[in-house]
Design a protein around this nucleic acid. Structure first.
Lengths: 261, 261
DNA sequence: GAGTGGTCTAGACCACGCA
DNA sequence: GCGTGGTCTAGACCACTCG
């Protein structure tokens, strides 16, 4: 009697509301189905060809609607497998006033985290690195790039640059960069962080396993020793769908206006 | 001999490098042209039909390449007018440790800002508003929604909710909400802010004049009086391409924001 | 009105996953 | 091997901008 074979929508025709371009009508229709619980996170959508047939539109139009929803993180597509309603993801919070390292931060809240090395070693510095880190001429820069994961879910890409005088042997870092720096008395006490939103480019999208163009937080951090010396320059990319930054604001003296000295 | 008529690429055929999907090849080709200065911010691209002809691909394929670049903020399209290389935008910075209002913040750095009212008045509260603002039963909520602009460029959408006991007459607000609250002794002294990246949905995209799916910063702010009472609950959406948030981090006790250099 | 981007179609082939 | 999504085409009409 009923069609149980993975077809959550039944097999009747798809009836669109009127108004606007077809792909937006279809998009609304899918959003509706999800909102009403006809189809839940993890469930498969009918195939593009099936939807096209039943909504009486071309497959290109179906793809345009689906593509928008993938873009917004509502759906995920797996080549050769199907289109699915995105699972709900738990968001991670990070303080914006306390200076911590990623691994310490996660350990504190009892999350299992791993890191995959992307790059590690001594390099010729870029002009930008030379200026920001205040490198002497001929001095090398230590670069550490990591992919941060909880379980199998990538969370962030972190690319740090430090003076080679501070980190002469990048390969000896075991887990936490800040712990390592602490041993040599070089742990930063202060940092300026610049945060903005961006659409992720292709290469990073693959690393973080999100669709190209997804929103991410781009964070640039410059860390200082108590002496005022710049010790670390880090560019990180955090997945927008799993990361929250939390800040506490107070009225009054801007303290520093957050300006580099 | 040379074609000066707005055709920056000349009129020869477009030669693509090999490898991968055509639309990505074409995308790379356009990026290259911009990188090499053949075409500068503000310049028009050849029309989609022209590009298709010269690259020997279909217009659909051209559109897919262009669409990706629009998504990444490299190009902008104007219906009926053409496709252009995006102008470089100046980024705005905002402190993440000092509690200020948008209008005060902008006035301080001498930027001309305007606001357009989107919504203003007393409403029946949503369950969320009731809980967060601690509304009594039957109490109304004051909602203030504004579109923030500098000149003609939209910067942010701000949707604030306050208890009607604090703001009984939302229509009387002239410019700055915080100034208004100060008059009645209700200016917040502390706030918790939650920041994350998201792809902008359709409706907000029109307001901010950015393509659907662009990266934006989503900020949720809960503000407190000195008494500890919640006074304001605001959801804002900031354009990712024009807004930077700056935070200063310090090692040690997180409960005290930032003090003593 | 000429030219631009925006939407849409019907049909084709390829690359991937899974049983 | 079959069904899925991924890419691509040639051609059509609409909606908008601008001279």
């Amino acid at each position: 009697m009923t069609d149980q074979s993975g077809n959550i929508f039944g097999d009747g025709p798809v009836v669109l509301q009127v108004g606007g371009p077809l792909y937006l009508q279809l998009k609304r229709w899918v959003e509706d189905a999800i909102k009403r619980g006809l189809i839940k996170p993890g469930d498969a959508l009918p195939s593009e060809r099936d939807l096209a047939l039943r909504a009486d539109v071309s497959r290109v139009t179906v793809r345009k609607a689906v593509q928008h929803l993938v873009q917004e993180g509502v759906l995920v597509q797996r080549h050769g497998s199907g289109t699915f309603v995105a699972p709900e993801t738990q968001r991670v919070e990070q303080s914006l006033s306390q200076l911590t390292s990623f691994s310490e931060d996660m350990a504190r809240r009892g999350m299992a985290v791993r890191a995959r090395w992307l790059e590690r070693g001594l390099y010729l510095p870029s002009p930008e690195e030379t200026i920001i880190l205040g490198l002497g001429s001929g001095e090398r820069v230590a670069r550490i790039s990591r992919l941060r994961l909880t379980g199998d879910v990538p969370l962030a890409i972190e690319r740090a640059s430090l003076s080679s005088s501070v980190l002469p042997e990048p390969l000896t870092i075991a887990d936490s960069l800040y712990k390592h720096l602490e041993k040599s008395g070089n742990r930063p006490v202060r940092a300026i962080q610049r945060i903005r939103a961006a659409n992720i480019p292709e290469d990073d999208a693959h690393l973080l396993e999100v669709p190209v163009g997804s929103a991410v937080l781009h964070i640039e951090r410059i860390s200082y020793l108590a002496t005022g010396r710049v010790i670390e320059f880090t560019r990180s990319t955090y997945r927008g769908d799993t990361y929250d930054f939390v800040a506490e604001l107070r009225l009054g003296d801007p303290s520093n206006g957050a300006r580099t000295p």
